[in-house]
Amino acid sequence: MLIYIIILAGSFVFLTGSALLALRWALRTGQLRDSRRTALLVFDEDEPVGRMTDYFPGRPLPPTDPASPSISK
């Protein structure tokens, strides 16, 4: 029985401790700040925010979508 208590208590201390350390690290290094920038990682100059990137082939596009440039003028 004692062995389980030691294991359970040990892992509890270890897990909680490492979670707290990770949290402290995250707060100190500003990981929780500026998450907006991270959310933008899926976009770039080629496919910027505001541009839809997937369509049914050969079907009309959304009429008001400003993101769809015409191919030719």
Binding site: Y4, I7, S11, L15, S18, A22, W25
Partner: peptide, 26 residues
């Protein structure tokens, strides 16, 4: 966030905890 090893440590510990808790301890 750009710190891979810390992320990996969390990933490792979470599964390790359930592996110990649900299989090794039983």
């Amino acid at each position: 966030m750009k710190y891979g090893p810390l992320l990996f440590l969390g990933i490792f510990l979470t599964l390790a905890s359930s592996w110990v808790g649900l299989t090794v301890i039983p």
